[in-house]
């Protein structure tokens, strides 16, 4: 009986996922350029948020310096493309390997010396700030003046990952889909179980044979590599890289807003959170400009974030699911249920 139920849930889950991405696909085909560019950022931050979510929401390791990995990805793509004309595909791969190794090294050093929890989080900030300052003074990567991609020729070149805004929208959509499917896949594999056990109680997990040292390094380097891939595409979309924006504290915070607002540790949280937070920020910023109230976006943003943390501490997505459960709407109720219990 259990099995049969599982299969039904599985089918509905897939159906809903496909519907969401079909709608997002239609947006890409039909929407105006403003919506396209806004949604590109939303989808990129869905993916970046997913990388952060994997690390904290599933692996239990807090990073407040994800900008480091995003920046390494961006610079790998930028330097190889702008200086040597090497395809961004190679840049993305390089960035992922580089960020993955840097993440693994930070994790190894930290956990080797029993630095964990909030102290590890402080270390990630320090590493990101160190890199930002280093890149700010490094002429080869453009220092403070930044690195600029040549203006796109107009046509779409898949081999060079170059194209117009709509092309990048679909690249971002593909990344977001990959992020969600990948997280779902990992979450159901033995890694997901072991990581969640490690997140909930590290010493209890060790007593059950979980090699937490190795698993922490693994989850952090995987998260870092994902963040680097997102960073590489973000750089291409923006057309320029500046150390203060791509490696700054601000970006580290932007990365974590999606999953925190949407629902930490859930597969759809980063998407829901980014969809809610980023357009709001842009809207308020535009409103602030036209009403001549500078900083309106920051104030609204702050108020909304505090409200979410205060009233929906586990995020918007779990709240939506609870609401659907309350009004007996099974099509969405299973989504959360299966996430928390069993597939």
């Amino acid at each position: 009986m259990q099995k049969k139920f599982d299969r039904g849930v599985e089918r509905t889950r897939w159906l809903a996922g496909i519907t969401v991405f079909a709608v997002l696909g239609l947006v890409g085909l039909l929407a105006n350029p403003y919506v396209i560019s806004l949604m590109t950022i939303v989808l990129l931050f869905t993916f970046l948020g997913q990388s952060w979510n994997l690390m904290l929401g599933i692996g239990g390791q807090l990073s407040i310096g994800h900008a480091l990995f995003v920046g390494l990805g961006a610079y790998s793509v930028g330097v190889l493309y702008v200086r040597y004309g090497i395809s961004p595909w190679v840049g993305l791969l390089t960035g992922m390997i580089l960020a993955g190794s840097v993440g693994a090294s930070i994790a190894w050093l930290s956990f080797r010396f029993e630095v964990r929890g909030i102290y590890f989080a402080l270390l990630t900030i320090a590493a990101a700030e160190f890199a930002r300052i280093m890149f700010s003074g490094w002429e080869f990567v453009g220092a403070m003046q930044g690195l600029f991609f040549p203006a796109p020729s107009g046509g779409i070149e898949i081999s060079m990952l170059r194209g117009d805004a709509r092309f990048y929208y679909f690249v971002a959509l593909a990344l977001a889909a990959l992020g969600i499917i990948g997280t779902e896949f990992i979450s159901r594999s033995y890694l997901g179980y072991v990581w969640r056990a490690m997140r909930d109680d590290e010493s209890a997990a060790r007593a059950l044979g979980v090699r937490t040292f190795q698993h922490k390094i693994l989850v952090i380097s995987l998260s870092a590599a994902m963040a680097a891939a997102g960073g590489g595409v973000l750089a291409l979309v923006q057309g320029s890289i500046f150390p203060d924006s791509i490696m700054g504290m601000g970006l580290s915070v932007d990365v974590l807003i999606g999953p925190v607002v949407g629902g930490l540790g859930t597969t759809f949280g980063p998407l829901v959170g980014s969809l809610a937070a980023i357009p709001l920020n842009h809207l308020m910023s535009a409103l602030g400009d036209s009403l001549r109230i500078p900083g309106l976006n920051n104030i609204t943003y702050g108020v909304v974030l505090i409200s979410v943390v205060w009233f929906l501490p586990d995020g918007i997505w779990p709240a939506i699911v609870r609401l659907c459960k309350a009004i007996q709407a099974p099509p969405t109720a299973w989504l959360w249920h299966s996430r928390k219990v069993e597939e």
Binding site: Y193, V194, R196, A197, R199, G209, K340, V341
Partner: peptide, 14 residues
């Protein structure tokens, strides 16, 4: 945050 069954599964992953 894990169900009873999931709790009991962790040890098997050793």
């Amino acid at each position: 945050e894990m169900s009873v069954l999931e709790n009991a599964m962790i040890g098997a992953f050793s």
